[in-house]
């Protein structure tokens, strides 16, 4: 019961901050989007040169640091690494490619659903399909093997990098790139974005909120705890959007979205599959990296590099739809994720 209460509280907090961030300047249906924000941060750091998506997002900094602080206080900060970091890097990379072909991480998919964007329902169907494939691998004995305790200092590095990014953003913005137009130029004030990240990071750490975990546990274990958070987020944002007159039901003309159903489905299927093999969605990877999980930090770096590749090589979709390069990248992603899946089946465990 306690776990479920925490998840419900987390869902409400995420929903309310998502609405606030959008009201105060974030792009529509993008109160939070882990994929988009990491992509913007990659642009802000000039890892790619797509002018419309460059901004070191304080939300990402806050999410990691919020999880870091709360895990320190609750004595759950536990530095660890060594569970197939190379595979995790690659899974993070392709999880990002899938998300940027769909145009959103699973969290933004939920916010898009709550905004009436029916393309995100297609994405959800793909996400569930990907999770089902992931579950089949888990049932066959898939494992990235165990992680080991590492030094405290090593666990501090990823949170410390977030502090450095914050210092750059506040103190040396001239070093960074900032979009003059497009989604990267649309953002809530830094203070609000940072506080939203810190609070959501904290509650996500305590509640173990995970968009992929919710669906996975419901199917695999008949445990609906995490899924409750998923539903609460959609409900809160849906109510907020209707109250604020931001609810527009349909497939056409949705903000920062395209209506190519096949690639919305396949993009999110890739995300769902990779997320189950990783043990958590993009949001959960950031939270775990705040808790000192360096394997998850490596996954987040994989997402960052994936985002840079996505914009350097024209893999990311636009409002006009997916690109040919993006479609090829998703197919390569399926092949690579399958290879990681098949090569990590534990013998005698099937």
């Amino acid at each position: 019961m306690k776990a479920k209460t925490l998840v419900i509280i987390a869902g409400v907090v995420v929903g309310v901050f998502a609405l606030l961030l959008t009201a105060f300047g974030n792009p529509a249906n993008m109160g939070f989007c882990i994929a988009c924000f990491i992509r913007d941060t990659a642009g802000g750091l000039k890892l790619h040169s797509a002018g419309v998506v460059q901004y070191v997002r304080p939300e990402i900094i806050g999410l990691v640091l919020g999880a870091f602080i709360v895990s320190l206080v609750s004595k759950e900060f536990s530095p660890r690494a060594g569970s197939a970091p190379g595979s995790r890097f690659v899974l993070g990379f392709f999880m990002m490619i899938g998300a940027l072909v769909f145009l959103g991480c699973p969290l933004r998919m939920m916010l898009r659903i709550a905004g009436g964007d029916l393309n995100a329902i297609v994405g959800l169907v793909g996400f569930v399909a990907g999770i089902l494939i992931g579950i089949a691998f888990l049932n066959k004995g898939f494992s990235l093997k165990r992680a080991y305790k590492i030094s405290k200092a090593d666990g501090y590095i990823f949170p410390a990098i977030q502090v450095v990014l914050l210092v750059l953003l506040l103190g040396l913005p001239a070093l960074l790139a900032f979009s003059a137009e497009g989604p990267g130029s649309m953002h809530a004030p830094i203070a609000l974005a940072l506080i939203a990240g810190l609070v959501v990071g904290g509650v996500a750490q305590k509640s173990r909120l995970c968009t992929a975990g919710g669906i996975r546990d419901a199917i695999l274990l008949k445990d609906f705890t995490l899924l409750t958070g998923f539903i609460v987020i959609i409900a809160v944002v849906l109510i907020g959007n209707i109250a604020l007159n931001n609810f527009n039901l349909g497939f056409e003309g949705q903000p920062i979205a395209h209506n190519d159903g096949l690639w919305n489905f396949l993009g999110m299927a890739l995300v769902g599959w990779a997320a189950v093999l990783l043990g958590g969605c993009p949001l959960r990877q950031l939270i775990l990296s705040g808790e000192g999980n360096v394997d998850s930090a490596i996954t987040a770096v994989g997402m960052l590099i994936g985002a840079a590749f996505a914009h350097n090589f024209g893999l990311a979709s636009s409002g006009q739809g997916p690109t040919l390069n993006g479609q090829i990248a998703v197919i390569i992603g399926f092949i690579v994720v399958a290879a990681i899946g098949f090569t990590n089946l534990q013998k005698g465990d099937a």
Partner: peptide
């Protein structure tokens, strides 16, 4: 050292 949901499985 196992990632979610392996301990439960």
């Amino acid at each position: 050292g196992r990632a979610c949901p392996e301990p439960v499985l």
